[in-house]
């Protein structure tokens, strides 16, 4: 049954890809959920994470797994820096003015990366063998990406549910004024949430390179920004967990629908998989206008 075998193989890869997509989206949802900021510079931060993994690996032979905490630290500090220099001034301004700011920041980061590292497409090969599932082969590095994505998501979940900070963040999301009255320092929560969002995003850049270890270049982020937007809304914008679920669905759709679409003559089946994925997004939104795990209203 080559058809079913291929479908199964594709779905396995789709699930791995979906987990990576999911993690790459959580930062975006986190920032939107708390600050109502649409970070159009999202992809630039993923690019920074990818370059972190690349340079650590090629310059210092540091295992990409160890780059994950390094990227997190870089991301957190960048998040704080960006928040206190730019974003703080835009709280309370028209909602979209922050979009202009993140647009500028995204371009600036891309151009800085090009300025320092050049526009080359780089990559690294971290070959640690693969597991043979008889229907398909999966490199361990991709399995690690899968596992790490889930672990990171779970850690984040417990931070949000179990700690005081997490409670405060959720309180701000629910009711900003109320939280303020209860003595929550909203600006600090904003700063923290923004930093965590960027930290997650940069970190996910490392995991992206575990899945796609090549083609690392200053402009690589654009594609991820686009998908992250769509996945975020699929899951219910302000819910990072929804983002994770949305990532899964998107990954499975992209890879799974190929096997069926390739049976049609005179089409480009792989391009159509994206059509299918985006169409399903629209259908889901029509059935449930606030996404899979979104709450009421906006």
């Amino acid at each position: 049954m080559p058809f079913l075998e291929q479908l199964a193989g594709n779905l396995i890869y789709g699930a791995i890809l979906g987990a990576v997509y999911g993690l790459a989206t959580m930062g975006l949802s986190q920032i939107f959920g708390v600050l109502k900021i649409v970070n159009v510079g999202h992809g630039a931060f993923i690019m920074l994470g990818a370059f972190t993994a690349y340079w650590m690996f090629t310059l210092y032979s540091i295992n990409p797994m160890l780059s994950i905490p390094i990227a997190l630290v870089i991301g957190l500090s960048m998040g704080l820096a960006v928040f206190y220099t730019v974003i703080r001034r835009l709280i309370g301004a028209p909602e979209l003015s922050s979009l202009l700011a993140t647009f500028g920041i995204g371009i600036f980061l891309e151009e800085l990366a090009k300025f320092f590292w050049g526009p080359d497409h780089r990559g690294y090969t971290w070959n640690i063998g693969s597991v043979n599932l008889s229907i398909t082969l999966i490199p361990y590095s991709k399995l690690l990406a899968f596992g790490m994505s889930i672990i990171i998501a779970l850690i984040l979940y417990s931070i949000f549910q179990k700690t005081r900070i997490g409670t405060a963040i959720r309180a701000v999301v629910e009711d900003r004024e109320g939280a303020m009255v209860c003595g929550v320092n909203v600006t600090r929560i904003y700063a923290l949430s923004f930093a965590i969002g960027i930290g997650l995003t940069v970190m996910s850049g490392v995991l992206v390179t575990l899945f796609v270890p090549v083609g690392i270049n200053p402009y690589m982020g654009g594609e991820y920004t686009l998908k992250a937007f769509v996945i975020a809304v699929l899951g219910g914008l302000s819910s990072p967990w929804g983002a994770f679920v949305g990532g899964f669905i998107f990954g499975l759709l992209e890879n799974g629908s190929y096997t069926i679409l390739s049976l049609f003559p005179n089409v480009e089946p792989f391009s159509l998989t994206r059509f299918v994925a985006f169409s399903v997004l629209l259908i889901i939104l029509l059935v449930k206008p606030t996404g899979l795990m979104g709450g009421e209203g906006e």
């Binding site: 769509v230 809304v233 914008l237 629209l282």
Partner: peptide
């Protein structure tokens, strides 16, 4: 925002 991003789709 749901409208905004649905239109990307």
């Amino acid at each position: 925002a749901y409208f905004a991003i649905a239109t990307i789709g």
